[in-house]
């Protein structure tokens, strides 16, 4: 102990030097916009590469459960195919024409970093503007909504998780659009909350909550989750609804980025009239 104190005393000026340099570097990176951006862009490039190789290893061990999820999704998609439907009414027939254009297309991506421990969570994927990703695109997992892209670099993109208190979405409950919003209160990572839903609607436990086209992030009818509990709000007039998330955000791995072909056009058109937030 005495030796340690002696060591500290004799080398005090070295520590002082290092402390002062540390303070200066901190101030430089924290308070200068230019230095901050250089620091963080370098750091994120390095981070992105390290996280990709880390994820490569981890993915190998998750293959089994991922496979299971994809199987489930396949079953879901199969049942939606036209071959499963029989035309009872012989007067109608399907016509393939040029009146329809594909509005939403899907880009598969892998989550290379994910966090659910904070109040504002984000996750990173291995797709960037090189692959056609842009800001404000929706992200879904095979089971339901996962997030919205907020930042894109050349090879990677960052999405705001649905487990983020800034994430807001208009819900559809049992196929009917409600003027409320889906928002996470930061507590339980399996549950999101529905806010501002008027108590005059007959909402029951177990009903399905899906997306609307509002906001132009997601197509309609993408699952958000099922209603877990409904309670009268303290303020009256509104309901307090807990929704059990369809996506397991802690196990997020294979996701799809949704490109809305008309997203930009719609946003530009609406921009002067609707508050952008």
């Amino acid at each position: 102990m005495q030796n340690l104190l002696q060591f500290l005393r004799t080398n005090f000026h070295y520590f002082l030097f290092l402390i002062l340099q540390g303070i200066s570097i901190f101030a430089l990176v924290r308070f200068n916009t230019y230095h901050q951006s250089v620091f963080f862009s370098t750091a994120s490039t390095v981070n992105g590469n390290i996280l990709t190789s880390r994820k490569n290893v981890i993915n190998y061990f998750l293959l089994k459960s991922e496979n299971q999820k994809l199987k489930e999704e396949n079953i879901l998609l199969r049942t939606r195919g036209t071959e499963n439907y029989i035309f009872i009414n012989s007067d109608t027939s399907v016509v393939r024409d040029s009146n329809r254009v594909v509005q939403y297309s899907y880009l598969p991506a892998k989550v290379i970093y994910n966090n659910i421990r904070k109040e504002k969570n984000y996750f990173t994927m291995d797709r960037g503007f090189k692959h056609g990703v842009a800001k404000d695109m929706g992200v879904i997992s095979p089971l339901g909504v996962a997030g919205i892209i907020v930042d894109v670099s050349e090879n990677f993109c960052v999405a705001m998780s649905i487990l983020n208190s800034n994430f807001v979405l208009t819900p559809k409950i049992n196929g009917r659009t409600h003027s409320g919003q889906v928002r996470w209160n930061g507590k339980n990572e399996d549950m999101v909350q529905l806010e501002k839903i008027s108590d005059q609607y007959p909402i029951k436990v177990g009903q399905e909550v899906t997306t609307t086209e509002y906001g132009h992030y997601f197509p309609e009818h993408i699952k958000i989750g099922n209603i877990e509990s409904v309670e009268q709000s303290d303020e009256g007039k509104y309901l307090e609804i807990e929704v059990d998330l369809a996506t397991d955000m802690s196990q997020l791995s294979e996701v799809y980025i949704i490109k809305n072909k008309f997203g930009k056009e719609l946003k530009t058109l609406e921009a002067p009239y609707i508050d952008a937030n």
Binding site: Q21, S24, F26, A27, L28, R30, F31, N32
Partner: peptide
Amino acid sequence: DSFSYTPGLQSFTAVFIMF
């Protein structure tokens, strides 16, 4: 630094040159 709005830049260099 405080007069030229570059927090940390001159103090880093000055301490280093002193070293």
